[in-house]
Design a protein around this nucleic acid. Structure first.
Length: 423
RNA sequence: GGAGAGGUGCUCGAGUGGUUGAAGAGGCACGCCUGGAAAGCGUGUAUACGCCAAAAGUGUAUCGAGAGUUCGAAUCUCUUCCUCUCCGCCA
C-alpha cells in the first residue's frame, strides 16, 4: 500500500508512474487526496470536541471532591450534547478512513524508474543470458513423456488422488525433488540466509500483509471451517514474521530462507502452459526474503539476482534474466527480475524465479519498521525471490539432459541424489 | 471435543471507576563516578493520527479486538479473538 505522504506530496509523479503499470490513477488519486483532506478536517473538529469533554469530566471529578454538587450537575448536563456530537463525528471519521483504506488497497505499487514501458511479455527487457543451449536430437521428448518413460512422475495418479496439477513423484523423481530442496537450502545457508520453517497455512491478516488479500483472493486455497489460507508461496508466512515489528537499524538487512510446498488455484489457466510440470496447483519452492533499509534495498536486490544466477549456472541450465515491464509486473512490486531457463524439448523458456523489491509497499501494510537512535520509526523495504521453484527446473533438467543412457543429473546435485542418471 | 485460567509498555509485574501513558523491578541508552571494568548514582526509554511554516510545543487515540454503562473505564457489562492448563483424541 502506498503511503498517504507519498500520494499527497508527489501527486503528479505518482500518477505518472502508475501509468507505467497500466494503471490510470488520475481520478482515484484525486479522490484519495480529497478524502485525506476531509479526514484531517474531521479529526481536528473531533479532537477538539473530545478534548472539551475530557476537560469537563476532569472538572466534574474536581467539583465532586469539593462538594460543589450544583456546579457539577450543570457541567454534567453540558456533556450530553458533546457526547452525541462526538458519536456523529466518530462515525464520520470511521467511514472516511474505511473508504480511504479501501481505495488505497486498489492502487498498485509504483514501478522503479528503470522499469521498461510496456504491457506484454514481449516488452520485458532481456538483461543477461548464460549457459549452453543443449543440442538435442529431433526426436527429443518433452518432460512429461520422459517422466512416464522412467516412471518418476505420475500425473494420472495425482488426478486420482486429488485432481489435475497435483502430481505424484516416485523413486528417483521423488529423490530428485528432495535433492533440489536440500541443494537450494544449503546454498542459501552458505549465502548467509537464516533458514526457517514456516506454517503452510496462514490467517487473513497475513494474506493481507503481503498483498495476496484482497487483490488475489481467488488464487489461494481457503479452508472455510477455520478461515485459513494455504500459502501460495513461503513469502507469505516468512515476510509476516515481521508484521507489526520494529527492528533495530543494525539488524538490517534481515535475510531469511524457507522451503515450502506452495498451493495455487491457478483459476483460468489452460493449454500448453499447464502441460506436465509447467504449471501445478502444488509445487515445491525455496524462497529467499530480505527486510532491508531503504538506502540499501537495491543493493540487496542485485545481490539476490546474482545469487539466483549462481544457482542456475550450477545446474548447468541455459538461462536468461528479464527486467519486467510495467504491465507484466506484479501489483505489489517496484522492480522485478524474472529468471527463465530453457526447456529444449518444448523449445520454451520457463520462468523459474521472480526476484522483486517491494520497497515500502508491503512494509506499509505489514507495519514493518526500523528505528535508528531516537528517530521516528521508518518503514523497511521488503524483497523476495524464488531460489528456486522446483517443477520447471525439473522439467528443464529432464528435457535438456536426456541421453541414450538416461537422464544425466547435474554434477552439483549428485552428492544430494546419490545417483548420476535416471534410467 | 469437554472443563478451567488468563490476555497491561522491550520483559516481568502492580493496578476493581477520577491528573494512569499507566506504580515497581528488570532490560536498554546516555551521563557521572573509575587507571579500566564491575558496582553505585543520575537521566531517559511506546506507537499512530492531527494542529503548527518548522522546531519547541500541543490535541486525540491506544492496557487483545469490538460494542455498551458512566460526566469519567485498564478497572463494570456484553460480544468476539487469541493464549495457557487439565481431560479426551492423536503424529
Amino acid at each position: 500500500m502506498l503511503t498517504l505522504k507519498v500520494i499527497t506530496e508527489n501527486t503528479e509523479e505518482v500518477i505518472r508512474r502508475l501509468g507505467k503499470k497500466r494503471f490510470d490513477g488520475k481520478v482515484i488519486i484525486n479522490k484519495v487526496i480529497e478524502l485525506d483532506k476531509k479526514r484531517r478536517n474531521t479529526q481536528v473538529v473531533l479532537d477538539n470536541s473530545l478534548s472539551e469533554l475530557n476537560a469537563l469530566s476532569k472538572s466534574i471529578g474536581q467539583l465532586m471532591k469539593e462538594g460543589k454538587k450544583e456546579e457539577a450537575e450543570a457541567a454534567r448536563e453540558k456533556t450530553t450534547q458533546l457526547k452525541e456530537n462526538n458519536k456523529v463525528l466518530e462515525n464520520e471519521m470511521r467511514e472516511i478512513e474505511q473508504e480511504l483504506q479501501n481505495i488505497l488497497t486498489t492502487i498498485p505499487n509504483l514501478p522503479h524508474d528503470s522499469v521498461p514501458e510496456g504491457s506484454l511479455a514481449e516488452d520485458n527487457l532481456t538483461e543477461k543470458t548464460g549457459g549452453v543451449m543443449p543440442d538435442l536430437a529431433e526426436d527429443a521428448l518433452p518432460h512429461w513423456e520422459l517422466a512416464k518413460r522412467y516412471d518418476i512422475i505420475d500425473f494420472e495418479l495425482g488426478v486420482k488422488i486429488t485432481g489435475a496439477g497435483f502430481p505424484v513423484y516416485k523413486g528417483k523423481g521423488a529423490r530428485l525433488q528432495r535433492a533440489l530442496i536440500s541443494f537450494f537450502l544449503d546454498s542459501a545457508h552458505e549465502a548467509g540466509y537464516l533458514e526457517v520453517q514456516p506454517p503452510y497455512v496462514v490467517n487473513a491478516a497475513s494474506g493481507y500483509g503481503t498483498g495476496q488479500l484482497p487483490d488475489k483472493e481467488g488464487q489461494m486455497y481457503h479452508c472455510n471451517e477455520d478461515d485459513l489460507y494455504l500459502i501460495p508461496t513461503a513469502e507469505v508466512p516468512v515476510t509476516n514474521i515481521y508484521r507489526d515489528v520494529i527492528l533495530n537499524e543494525s539488524d538490517l538487512p534481515v535475510k531469511n530462507t524457507a522451503y515450502s510446498a506452495c498451493f495455487r488455484r491457478e483459476a483460468g489457466s489452460y493449454g500448453k502452459d499447464v502441460r506436465g510440470l509447467n504449471r501445478l496447483h502444488q509445487f515445491d519452492k525455496v524462497e529467499i526474503v530480505r527486510i532491508d533499509h531503504p538506502d540499501h534495498s537495491y543493493q540487496s536486490l542485485t545481490e539476490m539476482v546474482d545469487y539466483v544466477q549462481t544457482l542456475v549456472e550450477k545446474l548447468e541450465l541455459p538461462w536468461r534474466i528479464l527486467r519486467l515491464c510495467g504491465g507484466d509486473m506484479s501489483f505489489t512490486s517496484a522492480l522485478t527480475f524474472d529468471f527463465e531457463v530453457y526447456a529444449a524439448a518444448q523449445k520454451r523458456w520457463l520462468e523459474v524465479s521472480s526476484v522483486s523489491n517491494f520497497e515500502s509497499y508491503q512494509a506499509n501494510r505489514l507495519k514493518c519498521r526500523f528505528k535508528s537512535g531516537d528517530k521516528k520509526p521508518q518503514l523497511c523495504h521488503t524483497l523476495n525471490g524464488s531460489a528456486l521453484a522446483l517443477p520447471r527446473i525439473v522439467a528443464a533438467i529432464l528435457e535438456n539432459n536426456q541421453t541414450p543412457q538416461g537422464i544425466r543429473i547435474p554434477k552439483v546435485l549428485v552428492p544430494y541424489t546419490g545417483f548420476e542418471y535416471i534410467d
